[in-house]
Amino acid sequence: MKVQIDPQRCHGHGRCYDLAPGLFSEDDEGYGQVAGDSAVPPDQEHVARLAVSNCPERAIDLVEEA
């Protein structure tokens, strides 16, 4: 599973890097960015889903790998 942020939708609410600091971080202007290689380790799946369901702009997608 991977996470991605749509930069067109993200407005820097920061719910993702609050809830899943291992997967997301903020850039110099507070916009969310995916930390590391965007792969979600199994023990982070729960917080990844939390970030998705709490982003007010619906800017985060989870991509299931085939």
């Binding site: 609410h13 939390l50 369901s53 709490n54 619906r58």
Partner: peptide, 20 residues
């Protein structure tokens, strides 16, 4: 409440600059 997509700080381009 774990899932809480509230909009207290607004939505879109005017998202509260002071939210953090």
């Amino acid at each position: 409440r774990e899932v809480n997509r509230h909009v207290a700080f607004g939505l879109g381009i005017h998202r509260c600059v002071g939210s953090h």
